[in-house]
Design a protein around this nucleic acid. Structure first.
Lengths: 126, 126
DNA sequence: ATACCCGTTAGAGTGTGCTCCAAGTCAAAT
DNA sequence: ATTTGACTTGGAGCACACTCTAACGGGTAT
């Protein structure tokens, strides 16, 4: 019979290691209100719970989609208000932005390829 | 018989209009050494030549490929030294960066699509 | 005990690429 | 004559997302 300790607490370094975010970034996210301030230990150190960890991992998932911090913030707010419609809408809106980004980079690549193919003319300043 | 005035001079506003760059940006590019300081008129105003205009347009072409200013700088340097090999190499290196960028954005889009498709699970915090 | 590491804070600095501001000059238009 | 408008400068400010610094405290290893 196994006992998993769900009341585990983590230091900021533990969370940093688990999430790949730096301790500085974690404090920064807390400062801008992106993550909840965790409990504090005897000497004022942050004591993150398993639930805290889960929420931070969730934020990293959103960041992995290159969602800007402000939009992550909005998403978290909508999520906390259980506004599924809004959550979906934000993801979908973000998807459109990502698609636009890809379109722009693709156009850029085409231009570059053109320049490389026509390099003889380009080097004459055209 | 037409005479085209190749000794035309332009004010900073003229160049701004021709290139789509703002006067501020033109002064900024000059400050960081990206474009040559043009002649000055009686009261110290910049007097751009047709050659100046051509060079600035060329910079905008490079910027249209989303090449960072530093790399544009390198390119201009190589260009001024007539180092075609280096010019080509820089363009080619930039192409690889753009391709990497597209790959990352594409992966991001895939992740987003996945999240949208599996939205029921996601909203449960997964 | 002493060193050493990890933690704390407010606030400054970084990089990229502009963009804006104040204070001034100068010339043309009314 | 004066107002308007374009130009000049050095330097500050902006957006984004961190990243680092200084100065400090507290716990652990030897």
């Amino acid at each position: 019979m196994y006992m998993v300790d769900n009341n585990m607490t983590y230091t900021i370094a533990d969370i940093a290691e688990q999430t790949g975010l730096s301790p500085d970034t974690l404090r920064y996210y807390e400062k801008i209100g992106l993550i909840q301030p965790p409990e504090r230990g005897y000497s004022g150190q942050r004591k993150y719970s398993t639930v805290d960890l889960g929420k931070i991992v969730f934020v990293t998932h959103l960041r992995n989609t290159r969602m800007p911090l402000k939009k992550v913030q909005e998403y978290i707010d909508a999520y906390n208000q259980q506004d599924e419609q809004q959550c979906y809408a934000l993801l979908d809106e973000h998807r459109r932005l990502v698609e636009a980004e890809i379109a722009e980079w693709t156009a850029t690549l085409d231009l570059l390829k053109y320049k490389l193919e026509h390099f003889q003319e380009i080097k004459d300043g055209k």
